[in-house]
Design a protein around this nucleic acid. Sequence first.
DNA 1: ATAAGTCTGTTGTATTTGCAACGATAGCGA
DNA 2: TCGCTATCGTTGCAAATACAACAGACTTAT
Lengths: 219, 219
Amino acid sequence: MKKYIPLLKNTLLFSGVGEDEISAMLSCLQARSGTYGKGEYVLRQGEHIGDIMVLVSGKLHVQCDDYWGNRSIISVIGVGEMFGESYAAPESGAVVNDVLAVEESVVMFFDIKRIITVCSSACRFHSLVVQNLFYALSEHNRKLIQKLGFMSRRTTREKLIAYLSEEAKRHNSSEFTIPFNRQQLADYLSVDRSAMSGELCRMRDDGMVEFERSRFRLL
Amino acid sequence: MKKYIPLLKNTLLFSGVGEDEISAMLSCLQARSGTYGKGEYVLRQGEHIGDIMVLVSGKLHVQCDDYWGNRSIISVIGVGEMFGESYAAPESGAVVNDVLAVEESVVMFFDIKRIITVCSSACRFHSLVVQNLFYALSEHNRKLIQKLGFMSRRTTREKLIAYLSEEAKRHNSSEFTIPFNRQQLADYLSVDRSAMSGELCRMRDDGMVEFERSRFRLL
DNA sequence: ATAAGTCTGTTGTATTTGCAACGATAGCGA
DNA sequence: TCGCTATCGTTGCAAATACAACAGACTTAT
């Protein structure tokens, strides 16, 4: 497990913690690791977990099958990313998605109770990890709230208005560059690309906005 | 501030902590309180905060104005509810919504740093509060993820399928009662009530589902 | 029992969307 | 330069949606 310490050093969870301290904390936190072959499930829908997980090798898919069997891929987890933090609390209830290894993968497990309850030996950086965990969760939370704000609008135009307003706020300017191309923006807002493209042009004709590729200006 | 201790005892943040311990922690956490008259802002969009807040009296609205001035009410905060936990971390960035007192209100402030970094005097229940905070955040997170899963579907039928599938999972049964009437469900899924009502009936005609008021059975 | 109010389903219409296809443009490497 | 690809706008059409209006079933207050 030691060989993954340099990698862990650069994760959000261990941000600001040195390699020596991480090494000490691995035993303090009683970290475990597991290997999953391609096609194996790391987590299954309905399962209850008590660990926060970090992928240290390979690639995972978060996916969901509905009652009638339609599958959709929610997100992709890459090396160094943390997952499970929203479902590790005791009363969390079951995980709602499957997590599948799409290639040979290694996952590290950290018991959430050992992270949250400060150890008696009081390793210096323990509280830093608790902070990091809190920060990661609250950041995740903010992004979800923001996205919900866009998606709760009824029409494509309203979604665009909400999104562009937010970007203008964020940049403190009515002129800004967004981090998406048209297809990505459409996926982000859950609308059809061509319909969105058309709506953008109509908004331009209505004198609400000017744009050039990913650069926008609100009027 | 002492008079609010019995109320705090029943909040999510202080769950499991006795009144005496809360009393001790108020000073340990250097809790502050503030009073807001009707129409006063508790938080304004663009502001940066470093406290977690609990409403101990009155009523607040979380609301949002877009670039063109359209206002929408996001949620209502009642007595005993916690807010601000998603924006209290140092690198959180600005709050994106306004929080307004819609009647005379009293809010208690808890410095997030003092909650997260365990105090040297090590009051016994401090780590319990950290746990509660984590649990509250992760629960909030799960609900947001779930709602996003419903809202990212394109059609009303797909949203209903996603929602009803989730409820069936949660109840471990294909038959269950939902906590919404038609209008509330439509608001929750961000669709038109009558269109949703029609779609539900078409799904029934297609043999996918049976229902009677708020009681559903998937087939 | 009556009246008022709530919840739900139904219908019709104008609007919006999803989808597929096509053309224009720009960037890039052979 | 030529072809290849990615991106973006545009169009036509079928499908889905929002919106308004209304009717029946049921609940509640008087």
